[in-house]
């Protein structure tokens, strides 16, 4: 679905290197989380996934199309839709339904079909009852779901979410994560989720950790989170129970270090006692 080859990006005519030679492959239907702290290059990378930024070195392929190919840019953007961080700054229209229609309208979808797509997309994010609402009356989580619906109405095969939960409260974060997970599981849409909240990465198929513009770690959640020391060095969080397991292990307790959930921890402790 997405493939990068030694992709590089430099701001300020290449003097500030944000992404420095990254190879990534995201397969069809996968749920990939990209983690890293601010300035690690994760957002720049995301913006290269749908041609908002073009690599200054290497290449990015979306479903086989090179993002540098100008003739393909609209195909690329409708194949890999993008949701941004600030829920307020990506809603264009003054009514929810109008906003969701914006993408298909741009693509020149026939009038009768747009209506249908808007309804389906809003249903998919459980926002159908807010069809006629002005966006400023919605909560942050609801706005992000409208933004996701706006992308869905373009019928993408992949959605890239660039820190969609960073500005939301816990309820909003939960709403967005549930929506994204459902779209991945039920609709088979490939998800690339960029975040610095580690708890949002626990259910991912694969985690990629970015640091200083490079791919630092890559693996399943268990493989990544068990490296507590390395993550802490990078200033990243681990789930509290994983940290506890790590601490116990350091105190010579015979416990597995790849514990991510409370249930796993309870089981492990019961076995020890």
């Amino acid at each position: 679905m997405i493939r990068t080859e030694q992709v590089k990006y430099g701001y300020n005519e290449g003097t500030i290197i944000a992404v420095d030679g990254v190879d990534i492959q995201v397969n069809n239907g996968e749920f990939v989380v990209i983690i890293g702290h601010n300035g690690s290059g994760k957002s720049t990378l995301a913006k290269m996934f749908n041609g908002i930024l073009l690599p200054t070195g290497g290449a990015v392929y979306i479903a086989g199309m090179n993002t540098a190919d100008e003739g393909k840019i609209w195909d690329i953007r409708s194949t890999a839709g993008m949701v941004f961080q600030n829920p307020d700054n990506q809603i264009v229209a003054t009514l929810v339904e109008e906003d969701v229609a914006f993408g298909p309208e741009n693509l020149g979808v026939p009038t009768e079909e747009i209506r249908e797509r808007v309804t389906t997309a809003l249903d998919a994010v459980h926002m159908a009852h807010h069809l006629k609402k002005p966006p400023h009356l919605l909560s942050g989580g609801q706005k992000q779901r409208v933004a996701i619906a706006g992308i869905l109405a373009m019928k993408p095969r992949c959605i890239i979410l660039d820190e969609p939960t960073a500005m939301l409260d816990p309820i909003g974060r939960k709403e967005v994560m549930e929506t994204v997970t459902r779209l991945n599981r039920e609709e088979g849409i490939t998800i690339v989720h960029i975040t610095h909240f580690m708890d949002e990465a626990i259910d991912a198929d694969r985690i990629i950790v970015m640091e200083k513009g490079k791919k630092h770690l890559e693996g399943t959640p268990k493989q990544i989170f068990s490296q507590v020391e390395r993550l802490k060095d990078m200033g990243l969080d681990v789930p509290q129970v994983t940290l506890l397991a790590h601490e116990l292990k350091k105190s010579n307790v015979n416990i597995s270090e790849d514990i991510l959930t409370v249930e796993e921890m309870v089981e492990a402790i019961c076995r020890l006692l």
Binding site: N50, I52, W74, R77, S78, G81, M82, F84, N86, N89, Q90, V92, F102, G103, N106, L107, A147, G150, I151, M154
Partner: peptide
Amino acid sequence: ELAMAMEARCYR
């Protein structure tokens, strides 16, 4: 940011 979001949604 809005301009970027509009572009990402194929506005031309």
